[in-house]
């Protein structure tokens, strides 16, 4: 696969913690590539290292050893400033708990990443994204007035406001019933079909099987299907 088509890449990444007297190896020599336009499901039991993988891939955490490349550039030892810029421009995040700010309206929540990126068209872009996820009539509602599925769709719109190259989703359907989860997953599929690279951590094997690729993590090691 040509180098330029890989959005993100992990090379022999390890990540360890000390908790009390216990030494935990959350990731153990993980090497993975995430080609542009791929839709990767990361599965595995609780505590296997899925979320750690996502945090490192999202430049939210640094590996104990190994390398991370974004668009081919080694960002392992990058400054916090550069990592912030990467999180701003290159990566979109969707979380299980949505993390919507309760005092802001739906429209304002979606604009938040654009605010930090200094994106001048964030208002129009947020409106357009909310319409595309079916929430064009909910722009001025507060998160507390929305259902779980609607909140997650707002979170997805928010993750896309800066036009990222890769979307990282940490159990995005974990708090939703199966019907709503299917609706949210359909949205991911649509985004992927339009060319967006997606990495999704999930426990839901039915959804994982619908992805273009499934990566299983167990005890910090990768077992690719």
């Amino acid at each position: 696969m040509p180098e330029h088509t890989v959005v993100a890449q992990l090379e022999e990444v390890t990540r360890g913690y000390v908790r009390g007297s216990e030494r935990i190896r959350a990731l153990d020599g993980v090497t993975l590539q995430f080609p542009a336009g791929s839709f990767t499901a990361v599965v595995g039991p609780s505590g296997s290292g899925k979320s750690t993988l996502l945090n490192i891939l999202g430049c939210m955490d640094r590996p104990s050893s190994g390398r991370i490349r974004i668009h081919g550039d080694d960002v392992t030892g990058a400054s916090e400033q550069l990592l912030t810029a990467i999180r701003r421009r290159t990566i979109g995040f969707v979380f299980q708990q949505f993390f919507l700010i309760p005092t802001l309206t739906v429209l304002e929540n979606v604009q938040v990443p654009g605010l930090f990126a200094g994106n001048p068209s964030r208002h129009e872009r947020a409106r357009a994204l909310l319409s595309s996820v079916g929430l064009g009539d909910r722009l001025h509602h507060r998160p507390g007035q929305l259902s779980g599925g609607e909140m997650q769709r707002v979170a997805i719109a928010r993750a896309l406001v800066n036009n990222p190259d890769i979307l990282l989703a940490d159990e995005p359907t974990g708090n939703l019933d199966s019907k709503t989860a299917a609706g949210v997953f359909d949205l991911f599929l649509q985004l992927n079909r339009s060319g967006l690279t997606i990495v999704m951590v999930t426990h839901n094997m039915d959804l994982a099987r619908c992805c273009t690729r499934v990566v299983t993590i167990r005890d910090g090691r990768v077992h690719e299907a």
């Binding site: 916090e80 912030t84 999180r87 995040f93 979380f95 930090f116 993750a159």
Partner: peptide, 16 residues
């Protein structure tokens, strides 16, 4: 705390 952590995720720098 979680909210600030989230804001850092979506690109808020130390200065922000």
């Amino acid at each position: 705390r979680r909210e600030f952590g989230y804001l850092r995720c979506v690109g808020a720098g130390t200065g922000d």
